[in-house]
Design a protein around this nucleic acid. Structure first.
Length: 317
DNA sequence: CACACGTGGGC
DNA sequence: TGCCCAAGTGT
């Protein structure tokens, strides 16, 4: 849960997660939809899918006991070097280094790394490995992360109270405010999406479940797709629904317009009410389609942007 | 190795 | 507002 996510954000999810899945066996035997529902809102949903699979692999290959060999831990889905090192050093005081965002920044300053950290990742792993206190790897790793979180911060590091200031090349050179070197990133691309809230004669709404891999994999959504050049929102929604669900609809009033940012692009969702005209919905580009009552929507895992749509529907009741 | 992969908070 | 960053991993 903590991968690329702040501790403060994780805590309430962690509490609810342990309520729902108190043991590895409970997680392994849970339905993926239930797992994603508990994860809803945390983001990077591959982590939930990987954790679910990891629990199943632990049942199958490790008698339900979390492994203590580095190689076996690294073999679990969703656990890389940093998570494995964090677990094995914290739980068993094993001599395994870590390299999370905090440690990257601390070490990039300590060695006055000339490049952006992600361009020289091997050098930083080397530093983390060499510096690791062989007599107390647990406390060393925790202290290194805490140093980055509280003293060697991204902006305005508190070098004067830093226990490593004498050994830190960045501080010695008075370069702490210029390091680490940041990557120059091009601006995120923008996409416009037409989305339909499709009603049938029974007053139900059509939702679909995304395929298990890729963006928001396994989550439910209101159907729609990318607005092509020269196309109106209404034309887009009608076309996408025909292509993805194989049904005919009439596009009606606008419900809401949502701006949302994902990790690698911005989107604007143009959401319209629609009415089902003909055809049985088919999961042509999704895993499953369903007609549901508005009151049932809360049972399904939805991404954040779609939660806004649900709230707009509830507000309009 | 570069890129995909969510969301919230800080400034 | 827009950009950076957060207990990174998989492909």
């Amino acid at each position: 849960m903590l991968q690329q996510t702040q501790v403060k954000t994780v805590i309430p999810y962690f509490e609810r997660w342990l309520q729902a899945f108190p043991t590895i066996a409970a997680l392994a035997t849970a339905d993926l939809q239930q797992v994603l529902k508990v994860w809803q809102g945390l983001g990077y949903y591959a982590r939930a899918r990987n954790l679910h699979r990891a629990a199943q692999e632990i049942l199958q290959h490790h008698q339900g006991i979390f492994p203590t060999e580095l190689e076996a831990v690294l073999a679990l889905p969703g656990i890389g070097r940093t998570t494995a090192g964090g677990i094995l050093s914290a739980a068993y005081n094993q001599r395994v280094p870590i390299l999370d965002g905090n440690v990257k920044r601390v070490l990039a300053r300590v060695v006055a790394l000339e490049t952006a950290p992600n361009r020289t990742i091997a050098r930083l792993w080397q530093a983390s490995t060499v510096l690791l206190d062989p007599d107390n790897p647990r406390d060393f790793n925790q202290a290194l992360m805490d140093l980055g979180a509280t003293v060697c911060t991204p902006k305005h590091p508190a070098c004067l109270i830093c226990p490593w200031k004498e050994y830190c090349r960045a501080h010695t050179l008075n370069m702490q405010d210029e390091l680490p070197v940041s990557e120059t990133r091009p601006p995120l691309p923008r996409k416009s999406i037409g989305v339909g809230v499709i009603w049938n004669a029974a007053g139900e709404i059509l939702i679909d479940r995304r395929r298990p891999e890729g963006l928001l994999g396994g989550l439910w959504e209101f159907p729609g797709g990318k607005i092509e050049p020269g196309e109106t929102v209404e034309e887009c929604i009608q076309r996408e629904i025909r292509e993805e669900l194989g049904i005919e609809i009439a596009v009606g009033d606008r419900l809401i317009t949502i701006n949302h940012t994902y990790s690698h692009f911005h989107v604007t969702l143009h959401v319209h009410h629609c009415h089902h005209l003909s055809g049985e919905p088919q999961p042509i580009e999704s895993d499953e389609v369903r007609w549901v009552q508005v009151t049932e929507l809360e049972k399904f895992p939805f991404p954040k942007a779609n939660i806004h749509i649900i709230n707009a529907l509830l507000a309009g009741e």
